Computed example of a mutant assay.
Amino acid sequence: MGYARLDLIYIVSKIAEAAIRSAAGLSYSLDDMPQSVKEAAAAIVATVSEQIAVEDDRILRCRICGKGPFTRKGLYLHVRRVHLDTIYDMVRRELETYLWRTKNI
């Protein structure tokens, strides 16, 4: 396993964590991301976090499985424990799409 593979795993995990925190309404930071992907990471966080949770009348529900209601921390823990692999796949797909668009424009 080379450095590029480790960097990709690191980037995907950081973006996934930020997306989960954003969906739950918790604070997050992308400051430790490489400058070259920081803009893409912010866009991916916004896209993926919209697909994780829905908030109706201040009631949070998981958009992936429909469970809820959750508190902000409860939603965060639910998504981390139950749907983390799904979130990694979503982030990886969005990142691949972003990189493909960048390469082919």
Rank of each mutant, 00 (worst) to 15 (best):
G68A: 06
A43C: 09
R93E: 08
P69Y: 07
L6C: 12
E17Q: 08
E94K: 13
L26I: 08
G74S: 12
R92T: 05
A19S: 15
E17F: 02
P69V: 01
G68Q: 11
E96K: 15
F70R: 05
L6R: 15
R21Y: 02
M33N: 11
R93H: 06
R58H: 09
R93C: 00
I44H: 05
D7N: 14
E94A: 13
S36A: 14
P34Q: 04
T47P: 03
R58G: 02
R61G: 05
Y88H: 13
D85E: 12
L75V: 14
A19D: 00
R93S: 09
I15Y: 00
I59N: 09
A53E: 00
Y28I: 03
I59S: 03
E50F: 05
T47G: 11
S13K: 13
V37R: 08
R80T: 13
Q35S: 14
S36K: 12
R80Y: 10
A53S: 11
E96T: 12
L95E: 03
D31S: 14
F70S: 08
R80H: 09
S36R: 13
R63A: 10
S22I: 00
D31A: 12
P34N: 02
R92Q: 06
D85S: 09
S27F: 07
L84N: 04
L77H: 15
K38R: 15
V79S: 09
M33H: 09
T86Y: 07
A42Q: 10
D57K: 05
K14N: 08
H78Y: 09
M90D: 02
T47R: 14
R21K: 13
V82Q: 10
K73G: 09
R80G: 02
T97S: 14
